[in-house]
Design a protein around this nucleic acid. Structure first.
Lengths: 343, 343
DNA sequence: CTTAGCACTCTGAGATGAAGAGTGCTAAGT
DNA sequence: ACTTAGCACTCTTCATCTCAGAGTGCTAAG
């Protein structure tokens, strides 16, 4: 059985009142504040129905109703629209993010902090997957004590570095190796390099300077792991505490504790839906420790290709409409910043 | 007036009992649990004296005493010793940190997380000041759309990168510029480069390819700013909440909120004493929002030179003896890891 | 100088009770 | 057949009160 128009209106009212006030909402409130033009009694009946159908819940007998996960889901899917952020908000985002292309790290960090600040949620920004990026340069730089640093730069401007032990290799050999690496790999995507035959060809060539094989392997391994486990930024622990649902220190601790483990984040990212933007509500999320939270996340692009996700983690009772709008806007500005000269 | 032996013993008892139980400690407790061989009444007199002298405080009339900032200070300076961590703890640190030299970021992150985990405090790890590091390589790598990336690598294995706009400059010119940069700068410390005449000489040479001046400036600026504002890692928001003093969400929020601002951290780092290891207790710290906290921090070394600090931020009521020992051990292992091939 | 004894103070945990919010049900109205 | 007023009922929340317990400071005796 579907929901008729009025039930949808009632559900909407409950969700929005609850989002606004963080308190169970009763029939009187709805009759007063939302013009459904029916009496509290009628709304009570509707609410009883909605509860039976699983869209609402009652904390205890004599309290109002709060939305269930299903209720929020219905609200997000069928009722609310993604709100366009205000002019001011857009302007702030552009002002803060737009001028920062010079340092990647800094751009991501800033975006992450700003997003948290605007939404009062934790913000989670997954760094770019370098898999489909085109290699721009490979450098092997001699360091002290028989070590070398392997640097990989992609055309998008991302750098990976790794230190390797390379006892007994002369700087000249490294320079030579750098040339070979560049010759073979420049212009190809990381993905091609890892899964194509380039590796074989390179292996062949490098037999000339056998000792450098380790270095090559280290480089490739480095790329591989970073492809699977992107860097990320998680910001805003202080902001999330503004919400009453996080006034309980143990809950907050549980959530933050879970999210402080990299493996959890990676797993989370891996399980995310592939849509351009989505909201995961409460227990839809598989991770037990953060099932009191919702996650909103959208894709950002580098040079036209999907590169990573920007999102927030906050209370289930979040303003989905507004927050999805902000997250979307944020990905757009970041994408612009990373894809082309802005201003 | 100094403190006689017995007063010191009483103060020590109060501090240690309070550290252990997080509750104001009364005269009975001390008489029972610490063998001073005097009656509670005597201890009461001593405690009254200590309170008058400012070493103890009373939350309210009929509660026990808690140490004041001054009391902790006296305890740390005159009474407690820095405890050597247990074999197990040392082993854990070495196992977790020791094997990680291949990626700097990862090393620091891991050290920071481990430290927080072991101490149940926030851990603050300030990245290395590159000022006294010797430059190992400068690379200018062409990217897409008239941009280039300037990479600076130091002999210690630290990388700085910055993207610069460089419209109309050909890759060959960049390669040429790379050579010039390397020729002039390699082998010198960042400090020398910024404050010596190398810059002038370089400026001269670069007049040949005038357009690259911007790139040079961008590079130097980048170094300069990163010299003043090192990267840092702040981990363990969830861990700090284990302490009862952080069960008050608003206090916790205030602390985390202050520490989430980079400028605060930078200012904090700038104001730190220069000692090899120190404890800043409560209001000794100038930052109002974290005056309920203490900071313990020690220097780590890269290639024998002081490079940065590793420390923790936790409740004033922390086990200074143990935590200072752990922090010290951590800096030693990290220093080893960064200075030489370990194992 | 130390200590036993004692009156005093303050907190914290229950217990109690009244107010308020909200519901479900019934019966009457449209 | 749907809507609504009325009402009894439930449950939480808050303030008030009391009482036990912990700890102190003071006094006087050892």
């Amino acid at each position: 059985m579907g929901l008729d128009q009025r039930k949808l209106r009632v559900l909407q009212s409950v969700v929005e009142a609850y989002i606004a006030n963080a308190q169970p909402v009763g029939s009187r409130t709805i009759a007063r504040d939302f013009d459904l033009n029916v009496s509290p009694a009628t709304i009570r009946n509707e609410m009883a129905d909605l509860e039976n159908m699983g869209y609402l819940e009652q904390p205890h007998t004599s309290a109002g109703r709060i939305p269930s996960d299903l209720g929020y889901r219905m609200y997000v899917d069928q009722i609310a629209r993604i709100a366009q952020p205000s002019r001011d908000e857009i302007e702030v985002i552009q002002k803060v993010i737009g001028h920062r292309v010079s340092e990647m790290e800094s751009l991501f960090y800033t975006a992450s902090r700003l997003l948290s600040e605007m939404t009062d949620c934790l913000s989670l920004l997954a760094g770019p997957f370098t898999g489909r990026s085109v290699l721009s340069a490979v450098e092997i730089v001699p360091l002290r004590r028989g070590r070398a640093m392997v640097l990989v730069v992609t055309e998008d401007g991302f750098v990976q570095n790794q230190i390797v032990d390379s006892p007994g290799i002369e700087p000249e050999q490294m320079e030579h190796a750098s040339e070979i690496f560049n010759q073979y790999l420049r212009g190809h995507t990381v993905h091609e390099i890892l899964h194509g035959s380039l590796l074989e060809a390179l292996r062949h060539e490098l037999n000339l300077t056998q000792e450098l094989m380790d270095t090559a392997m280290a480089l490739l391994l480095s790329q591989k792991t970073s492809e699977q486990h992107p860097d990320f930024f998680l910001e805003g622990a202080a902001n999330i505490m503004k919400h009453p649902e996080f006034h309980d220190i143990h809950r907050t601790q549980r959530v933050l504790s879970a999210l402080s483990r990299r493996s959890v984040i990676w797993d989370l990212l891996r399980r995310f839906p592939k849509e351009d933007i989505f909201a995961l509500i409460g227990a839809e999320n598989v991770y037990e420790d953060i099932q009191e939270c919702s996650v909103v996340s959208a894709v950002y692009y580098v040079g036209g290709k999907a590169a990573g996700r920007i999102g927030v983690i906050g209370p289930r009772r979040m303003n989905y409409s507004r927050i999805m709008g902000i997250v979307k806007a944020m990905t757009e500005v970041v994408s612009d910043s990373l894809s082309d000269g802005q201003a």
